[in-house]
Simulated assay, not measured.
Amino acid sequence: MVTGKTVALKKVRFDNLEPESVKFMARKVLILRRLDHPNVVKLEGLVTSRISCSLYLVFRYMEHDLAGLAASPAVKFTEPQVKCYMHQLLSGLEHCQNRGVLHRDIKGSNLLIDDGGVHRIADFGLAMFFDPNRKHPMTSRVFTLWYRA
């Protein structure tokens, strides 16, 4: 279907259709489908390619990520911008956690910003479901090394 919208395609890697790889991809799609908030990337759809036997996740195109903007000498964030981005980040995280989703990889390159200043949390590859009423141990080995506490 032609809509005229610019989108971003993210190729989902399959390691020879290994059961763990398929399970990982299915969890990611289930998580993305559960989330619907202005400050969280929205899964617009799925596209398959018969030629390459690939699956692509379709998202709204976002012009920037926070890490790229912060690294640019031409960009200086104002205090109101920082407050606005923090508010949007916390609002998106609250939505995720209210729906039983832990992102587990919040970092600048996973925080997308469009030209209108709207901030969205992206990349739910390490995300998992959780139930605050069920106490079960979680792994302590999931993190991006640079951001480890």
Rank of each mutant, 00 (worst) to 15 (best):
L17V: 00
S54R: 06
V41G: 00
A26P: 02
D115R: 15
R134T: 12
Q81G: 09
G92K: 00
V58H: 04
F77L: 13
L145A: 11
L57I: 03
F14G: 00
F14A: 02
V2W: 11
G117R: 09
L126F: 10
H136S: 13
K107E: 08
K11L: 05
C84G: 05
R27L: 12
R34D: 08
Q81R: 12
E63F: 01
L93R: 03
I106N: 06
V29F: 08
Q88W: 00
N133P: 01
T3G: 07
P132T: 08
V75D: 04
D105T: 12
I106K: 08
V2T: 12
E44P: 01
F130Y: 15
F77P: 02
P73G: 10
L17H: 13
K107Y: 10
R34S: 14
H87T: 04
S49V: 03
A26R: 11
L46P: 04
L9P: 01
M128D: 12
M62A: 08
E20H: 04
L17W: 15
N39Q: 04
L90W: 07
F129R: 14
E18M: 06
G117L: 12
D36H: 12
L145C: 11
V7E: 05
A26L: 13
W146T: 10
I121K: 02
L66W: 09
F59Q: 01
S109A: 15
R104E: 06
K23F: 04
M86Y: 11
A8E: 06
T78S: 15
K28S: 06
G108T: 08
Y56P: 06
I51N: 10
R33K: 15
Q97M: 14
R148G: 08
R13A: 09
R60A: 12
S140E: 13
L35Q: 05
E18C: 05
A8G: 08
V142E: 09
D65E: 11
P137H: 08
P132W: 02
L66A: 09
S49R: 03
L89I: 08
V58Y: 06
K107D: 08
E63P: 03
V75C: 00
L66K: 05
S140V: 13
F24A: 10
F77K: 09
E63M: 02
V75K: 01
L145D: 10
M128Q: 13
H119F: 15
L57D: 00
E79P: 02
I31P: 01
Y61I: 05
T78V: 07
Y56T: 03
V12A: 07
R104L: 13
L93V: 13
R27I: 04
L112A: 01
L43A: 02
F129M: 13
F77Q: 11
K28E: 15
E63Y: 03
G125H: 00
K11C: 06
M62W: 05
H119W: 10
C84A: 14
Q81I: 09
A70M: 11
R27T: 09
G117C: 07
N39D: 02
G125F: 00
S72M: 03
D115F: 11
P73N: 10
S52H: 15
P132N: 04
D65F: 01
G108V: 06
A70L: 13
H37V: 00
L111M: 11
S21C: 01
R141E: 09
R148Q: 09
D105C: 11
P19R: 07
H103W: 05
I121L: 07
Y61E: 05
G125N: 06
E94Q: 12
T48V: 15
